[in-house]
């Protein structure tokens, strides 16, 4: 290709070259590829590109490298300095899971005080926000301002400001159980063959979901999968059993235990918390045990 005959555009040429080499181009490369440009001219062009944000300057092994930067990703607002740009990009990469300040420090190579300043200024400008994670209460993660935090960070529907709402869960679990029991009773009342009774007493999570929503006990809207996890606790409490339907969804049904509370726990010894320390002699012994006395004098 005869370079001298066509009109030479150094800017587009350099961009082309940088695009071909994502690892960056050095001054030496530029000189080899564009011998016709003299140094001041080249400096002028590169400075222009750097200012426009098309190229980025890196330094490796005492050598300057220019890298191409995709203008479509260029979202950093004007008025930010280079540190802010770097930090912003790291946070952007983390997505809605957020990133911990320690990891930002490692990635950006900024020192603590500087990073704090940068983060604060980004926060003030409402580019990013800090979200407290539920898994570790003291850990703050940063993410872009307009992102909705991931459920692994907020804990989903069961968390309010990193506090697990156990009462809310308990109430829901009770109501789910109640629904299943009512369903079983209904099925029994309607009568019919055992298989029919069984099939009628099965409920899907979607049905329970509808029931819970109609009750209106929840201020926030719950998804069907939220109800599934609540129903799983009912199953774990042995108040319901879960089977898989033909189409792969789960069916729930209220059940009974196999046995009544065993004789062991009908006595105070079976539920005694100091039973390990109890012996024939010593301060905890059956003859002077106050728990036994209370239990025996009770009705």
């Amino acid at each position: 290709m005869d370079v001298k005959n066509i009109k030479f555009d150094p800017e587009s040429h350099i961009i082309e070259l940088a695009k071909q080499r994502p690892e960056g181009i050095s001054n030496k490369d530029l000189k080899e590829n564009m011998p016709q440009l003299d140094l001041p001219e080249l400096t002028g062009v590169i400075n222009k590109l750097l200012k426009g944000g098309v190229l980025e300057l890196f330094k490796s092994n005492e050598e300057l490298l220019y890298k191409y930067k995709d203008p479509s990703k260029k979202t950093t607002a004007k008025g930010s300095d280079n540190e802010e740009k770097v930090v912003y990009r790291i946070i952007e990469e983390a997505g809605n899971k957020g990133i911990w300040i320690r990891d930002i420090r490692f990635k950006s190579n900024l020192n603590m005080t500087q990073l704090n300043k940068v983060l604060k200024s980004l926060e003030i400008k409402k580019f990013i926000k800090a979200v407290k994670s539920v898994t570790a209460s003291k850990k703050k993660v940063y993410m872009l301002f307009d992102l909705e935090p991931d459920s692994s960070v907020t804990g989903g529907a069961w968390y309010q400001d990193q506090d697990f709402e156990s009462e809310f869960v308990d109430v829901l679990s009770q109501q789910c159980h109640r629904y299943l029991v009512e369903r079983l009773d209904d099925a029994k009342k309607q009568g019919g063959s055992p298989v029919m009774v069984r099939n009628r007493s099965y409920a899907t999570a979607a049905e329970v979901h509808k029931f819970i929503q109609d009750l209106g006990i929840s201020k926030i809207s719950l998804s069907v999968s939220d109800i599934e996890s609540i129903l799983y606790t009912v199953v774990l409490d042995n108040n319901a059993e879960r089977t898989t339907a033909a189409n792969g969804t789960f069916l729930y049904k209220a059940t009974h235990n196999f046995i009544f509370p065993p004789g062991l726990v009908k006595t105070c010894c079976g539920t005694c918390l100091v039973a390990n320390k109890c012996a024939h002699t010593g301060s905890v012994n059956p003859t002077s045990c106050t728990y036994l006395t209370d239990w025996l004098s009770g009705s």
Partner: peptide, 13 residues
Amino acid sequence: EMCYKTLFNHITR
């Protein structure tokens, strides 16, 4: 073991 202990306690008592 717990059952035995309970029995023991009750008989002793």
